[in-house]
């Protein structure tokens, strides 16, 4: 018994020290770049995301197991714009992996590929939990997903030149599917263009900009600040006065305030995943927009 225990420990150590396969090991902070990287990298990469799709990406801890994942990574992809500010510093430093330190080819800040919205020139914390360099929820614009995919493909090719052809082909396929899907999503969202909605957090800025929805108010009085009753009352009045039909909430938020706003105003509460893996059946980047646009279309029809 003791010898078998010893052997299993040795095997476990060996498996960590000398991984058998030469696949590129990619760690992403959230699920959406992970889904895109899987589409581009195919069999040449292994991809692990730190946050679950059903998890609020603002509230991750700097867990030591994340350091272990990063220690063995060839590439770390972050959303950036301070989305990961609560944990990325300690886990990158604690990973003891020179390849993935900021400035190295193994560290990829995906925000460099998009045009950030809501950049705040003069920021202080009286404004709530804002992101001065821009709103970080940019993956919710499918065109930003295209930009992320191109950036990821280029970095994978730089780190793994042998896979360049595969990455280029997979990128082309991804973009082709995205273009086709965008036409579907655009058709679904067209009836909502110009219509006001309420959202919980400032998570939907890029999505609403892409499909021309007006965000008339937020359940949070300021980013990251829970709603006080007086603010909720003001929102109910606003929804009634403007005839707002939709209250869009990420599935991980507490629904007590949105629920009473919906109940008292007649608006439809749409609780939906804002990341891949956030709901059952949302397994790819395309699934995510399929689900969001379908739920919004259903809410408008009802």
């Amino acid at each position: 018994m003791r010898s078998s225990f010893f052997v299993s420990i040795v095997l476990a150590v060996v498996s960590v020290v000398a991984p058998a396969a030469a696949k590129l090991s990619v760690v992403t902070t959230t699920q959406d770049p992970a889904a895109i990287t899987r589409s581009i990298g195919g069999d040449r990469v292994t991809v692990t995301a730190l946050a679950k799709g059903y998890q609020d990406p603002h509230f991750l801890d700097a867990k030591p197991s994340y350091m272990l994942l990063l220690h063995n990574a060839d590439l770390v992809e972050v959303i950036g714009l301070d989305l990961e500010i609560g944990y990325i510093g300690p886990i990158v430093a604690g990973a003891r992996n020179d390849k993935i330190q900021p400035g190295q080819p193994g560290f990829l800040d995906l925000s460099q590929f998009i045009q950030p919205l809501e950049v705040v020139a003069v920021a202080d914390r009286s404004q709530g939990d804002i992101h001065p360099n821009g709103n970080p929820h940019y993956w919710l614009d499918p065109e930003n997903g295209r930009a992320m995919a191109r950036g990821i493909a280029a970095r994978l090719a730089a780190l793994d030149p042998g896979g360049q052809a595969l990455y280029a082909a997979n990128l082309a396929a991804f973009e082709q599917t995205l273009t086709a899907k965008e036409a579907e999503w655009q058709a679904r969202m067209a009836p909502l263009a110009g219509k006001p909605i309420i959202t919980f957090h400032r998570s939907w800025t890029y999505f609403t900009a892409r499909y021309h929805l007006e965000v008339a108010g937020f359940v949070e009085p300021k980013p990251g600040i829970p709603p006080a009753p007086m603010h909720t009352l003001g929102l109910i009045k606003l929804v009634r006065a403007r005839g707002i039909k939709i209250l869009l909430v990420e599935s991980f938020y507490d629904r007590s305030a949105p629920a009473i706003i919906a109940e008292k105003s007649g608006a439809r509460l749409v609780a939906v995943a804002s990341s891949v893996g956030g709901d059952a059946g949302v397994d790819t980047y395309f699934d995510l927009f399929d689900r969001i646009t379908a739920e919004l279309e259903r809410a408008l029809r009802s």
Binding site: E118, G128, I130, K222, A228, I260
Partner: peptide
Amino acid sequence: ATAPPVGAAVLPDLSATPPPPLTT
């Protein structure tokens, strides 16, 4: 209906404060 009411009650209502100026 909203929980927890105690946390919200001891803070000033922030809804009257305009949102921060935003730029692209």
